[in-house]
């Protein structure tokens, strides 16, 4: 199919892929979770520290394609320091934004909107959502492996 690759690989995504933010293990992490996409071998470990109902710190180690690494990086910037309720809301909004067939505006997502281009590439949606699944698993205290399958 011919499509505009620049929609998918926007500059902001390439920048986060090449220079992932917060790619580290946070100090005194309170929970971890590992995400795995068995289809393509993408792997991510997300670690969090929660304090007083806030997501005080979030870090990760991602090895995978541009979409999954950029998604992890953008996610870490978007959720860091937020109250847990808000993090949960953002997780849901993100899931909606990348799977919604008719697009739409997601004003609260800011830079995360750059990832909405995966909507047009069904096989790549899981790349974008993998870090978010891992984050939710870490926050729900499910200290285990999540997979996209």
């Amino acid at each position: 199919m011919s499509f505009d690759l620049r929609e998918l690989y926007q500059e902001i995504i390439l920048d986060h892929y090449r220079h992932p933010r917060n790619q580290r293990e946070p100090e005194r992490a309170t929970a971890h979770s590992e995400g795995h996409n068995p289809l393509c071998g993408d792997k991510i470990t997300v670690s969090v520290r929660t304090e007083n109902g806030q997501l005080a710190e979030v870090g990760y180690h991602a090895s995978g394609c541009a979409i999954s690494v950029a998604s992890a990086s953008l996610m870490s910037e978007a959720v860091k320091g937020k109250p847990l309720g808000e993090v949960e809301r953002l997780c849901k909004e993100f899931q909606g934004a990348v799977t919604s067939p008719d697009g739409g505006e997601f004003p609260e997502m800011g830079d995360l909107n750059a990832l909405a281009g995966v909507r047009e590439h069904p096989v790549r949606i899981k790349c974008a959502t993998l870090p978010w699944h891992a984050l939710r698993a870490a926050l729900s205290g499910v200290d285990k492996m999540v997979t996209t399958e």
């Binding site: 690759l5 993408d42 394609c65």
Partner: peptide, 11 residues
């Protein structure tokens, strides 16, 4: 990453 190579080639 190979996945991204595959997507660009698909285009």
């Amino acid at each position: 990453h190979p996945h991204d190579i595959g997507t660009v080639l698909d285009a």
